[in-house]
Amino acid sequence: MKKTAISRRSLLASALGLTLAGTIWSGLAHAQDFKMGLLVTGSVAEEGWNRIAYEALKRVEKELGAKISYVELQQNPASFEKAFRDYASQGYQVILGHGFEFQDSAQTVAEEYPDTVFLISSSNVHDGKVIGLNTDSSQPFYLMGAIAAKMGKAAGLIGGMEIPPIKEALEGFVNGAKDASADFKVSQVYLGNFTDATAAKEAAINMIHGGADFVVPDADAAGLGTIQAVREAGPEISTFSIFSDQTEIAPKNILGTYIADYGQGVVRIVKGIKEGTVPTSNVDFGLKDTDVVKFSYNDKAAHPVSEDVRKYVEDVRAKIIAGEIKTRHRQ
């Protein structure tokens, strides 16, 4: 996050310029720059959800030469609309609101700024230039559930808060496990926040004592507590690395890594927008988008996933991509 003083100075100079431009020239002066803004509800410094968006923003800067900026708003729905408006009024062409909760405010602000494209993460909205970008985590979690059911006795899942991206991911895991082995037991715990790594660790320890040999977190920074618990429990307990590669933290226990290369997907969409093609529907990234949703194995684990399980996984992966297996919304 730290830059050289020179670049920060110039960033500030341009920011001051923009403030003035906003009042005097109504943003005309900077019309030629391509700019993208990002709104997140927490810290981009931590591993997990918000960091993914930050990485995506950096990719857009690097690969498309865009000017970028981001703002951490805490969980404050009242501030979303203003932040959208701040960016839109400064002539930002694309603004990414990272979470379904940004949807309402984006739709309101979009009416006033018809030239700006509003991307909303974890949403399936499509309303003019307000476009949902959903990463369907239930698909890779389905694969993890299948592996757990094929290799283990019982699994435990630790979610941060009960919000759609997490609920759906856990649902995918349960479905994957049940389809692979009908009476495989999966238990779930929600922490109620994304900060309490201590609770995440204790929840994992409890699940392990209760007989789970797979414990998988989906709780951002707090999830590190779960990985820690699994590592301390020894090589018989397994887990997966979620969203980013944490294999080095517990190399014996992490059987595979689900990486959501959201940056790749965002760059693809934003590139289109820069060249003049705004998506005509909401975007759903899944296993079909092999450049975005990646699932890979860790061969150095104490008990790496065996060949026949991998074959089963490849089989269901193909069926998910073909639309033959539904990983979420089953009822």
């Binding site: 996050m1 920060r8 960033l11 500030l12 920011a15 001051l16 923009l18 403030t19 803004g37 810290s43 410094a45 900026s69 981001y70 703002v71 951490e72 708003l73 805490q74 501030s79 203003k82 932040a83 701040d86 960016y87």
Partner: peptide
């Protein structure tokens, strides 16, 4: 509050 958000938007100072 408002200023700290602007501070981050324009100068990327951590909002905390």
């Amino acid at each position: 509050d408002s200023g700290s958000e602007l501070m981050q938007i324009n100068a990327q100072v951590p909002q905390v």
